[in-house]
Design a binder for these strands. Sequence first.
DNA 1: GGAACATGATTGACGTGTCAATCATTTTCT
DNA 2: AGAAAATGATTGACACGTCAATCATGTTCC
Lengths: 157, 157
Amino acid sequence: MTQRKRRLPTTEELRIWRDFIETAEALRSELSSRLQSESSLSPGDYAVMLALSEADGHRLRPSELAATIGWERSRLSHHLGRMEQRGLVRREECATDSRGAEIVLTAGGAEAFRGASIPHLRAVRELFVDALSPGQLTAAGELAAALRGRLAELRAR
Amino acid sequence: MTQRKRRLPTTEELRIWRDFIETAEALRSELSSRLQSESSLSPGDYAVMLALSEADGHRLRPSELAATIGWERSRLSHHLGRMEQRGLVRREECATDSRGAEIVLTAGGAEAFRGASIPHLRAVRELFVDALSPGQLTAAGELAAALRGRLAELRAR
DNA sequence: GGAACATGATTGACGTGTCAATCATTTTCT
DNA sequence: AGAAAATGATTGACACGTCAATCATGTTCC
């Protein structure tokens, strides 16, 4: 086996790669645009509000929130600023650590989230789940696991 | 069969969906950051330059270019502005249609693209192709086709 | 106690993506 | 020819994401 890791992808492998990544992107974009037009929320808003709505008292520290949804803190901070402007969340001071803040889902935010949720889940079913056979769905999960595993391996080094 | 299309995804289906879309996103992000650090090019730059480098005379009309890489014209126009600033491409007037322009890959652009290409392809192999079994690779292609087909169906309506 | 360091979070700068509006040049149609 | 519509492309405004820098508060350790 000569330098397995140094070979370049074949034309066919490259085609699959491009199909895969472009399709994922198209899917993300379609979901995003539906969410936007149906509820004026972005996928980012949705992720933040999902985490908050599942949290105790509809509130979380920014760091916990960032960890939950897998975002960098900086990204979250910018996003929260925009969401706060729109009245979806509120920043409050943290009682136990005065460096920190607490992010609270407002009543309006909770309502917006409730309104967005069902249509969004329906869209996921329509565009993803129902587009695949049961076997393909399983395969999708395994694919994600394999790719994720690979990424984790490399980061570990 | 009662209202098949109106049911919401199950917890398991939702988990797969999230794994899938988040993994694709993580992959995109990792590839992007490697490309950036190795060659100071973004995936967008790369897509544009790949199309140009395969075109006759290393030049294309913006609309053709946009169609080739599947971008909206507005997005392309903004991106070309930034690339032009960096000397990667040049805008020239079009001989046959004075509304139009022609985008030309500069010598510097071509060189940057050549330098980025091999490492990028290696990264695709390492992070995608080599992470999957041959069967999974095939499955990835079929998955993409199924999802793409679904998107096309819906747009056609 | 107080210097050094760690942690929680925000900020600014800048590249990127979308949408709607705009502008100039064809093309079409009568 | 000339008004109307189509086409090629750009622009401005604004949301989003990343990176490096910053700031304030906590923690550690002598």
